[in-house]
Write a protein that binds this DNA or RNA. Structure first.
Lengths: 175, 175
DNA sequence: GCGACTATCTATAAGCA
DNA sequence: TTGCTTATAGATAGTCG
């Protein structure tokens, strides 16, 4: 009779794969997929891109157009205020520090944007909830509470982060 | 008569998209896809990864875990002959600073993940609201508004954080 | 670890809001 | 730019060799 050669692709949860073999296989396949995506993005949109990844075994693996180094250099260059360029040979500490601060700033900007977007979505949902007339939504209630708890944690994390930044900045200034 | 709501996804050739608008849209969507893939690879396989890409407009955009810089540094370290190790002690201050900043970067990454998780939950809630069509949802409404207030606070915190980072960065540059 | 294969799952092109 | 929808193209989990 008919056999089932394969169940086909199964849905998986995005969390660490515990089985080492599976993790390794997944890594190989997805790394290839990621590199391909990068390549396509590069060709389709004519942009520069670089990916650096470390295998589970800790070996570096990378791809870049025109090259990893050129992209990384351009990245550092872009994150370095132009008036620092004259003292390029002074790169040592200040510039590295600056890069990190700039990056942090950039990430925070992105977070801000996301929060803003999320806020707007909340407004929409609120309106929907008001307009709608639901019942038998116990499960939705649970979800709502989870989300709320998460937001509390998130807020706390942000506060810690801010405190850390301020403190660190103070330390730097003392030097 | 029957209309054609959409032809759905069309096959495209992997070559530079000439139409500028389309190229820009494609870039935005695929960059998001690529970043997501990187994030999944990172979580599923527990590896470090960084992507640096420049928008068609030339602006740098990046993602990295634990941070772009830490991955780039590790990459350089791996590609750097050991004779650089001798001057380790020269990094005394810088290294401590770097570690601290890396921690902050990591916190930022985690926050990003949390925001992402929140976004996903929102989608679930949204669908739930759409799917159901009952009434008396006042509790959900409260939750929604509470969350909204939290988001406002969160946004304010982030703005302060960013302002602090920018200010400190400026001060450092003056030195 | 590397391909091959299949059945699914996921990403996304196109068009519009 | 970002979101949403539809319908399809592309990626990949599970399995075998």
């Amino acid at each position: 009779m008919a056999k089932k050669p394969s169940l086909g692709r199964q849905k998986i949860e995005i969390k660490r794969i515990e089985k080492e073999d599976s993790r390794q296989v997944c890594f190989s396949k997805r790394r290839a997929g990621a590199f391909k995506k990068a390549s396509e993005l590069c060709i389709l949109c004519g942009v520069e891109i670089a990916i650096i990844v470390f295998t589970p075994a800790g070996k570096p693996s990378s791809i870049g157009h025109p090259s990893v180094d050129s992209v990384v250099n351009r990245y550092h260059y872009c994150n370095t205020p132009s008036f620092n360029l004259g003292s390029k040979n002074n790169f040592s500490n200040g510039t590295l520090r600056m890069n990190r601060l700039c990056e942090l700033n950039q990430q925070c900007s992105e977070l801000l944007n996301q929060v803003e977007a999320e806020k707007n979505r909340r407004i929409v949902i609120n309106k929907a909830v008001k307009a709608g007339k639901g019942d038998r939504f116990f499960w939705a209630q649970e979800i709502g509470e989870f989300a709320l708890n998460d937001l509390r944690d998130l807020k706390a994390s942000m506060e810690n982060l801010r405190a850390g930044v301020v403190k660190r900045a103070d330390e730097i200034l003392k030097v």
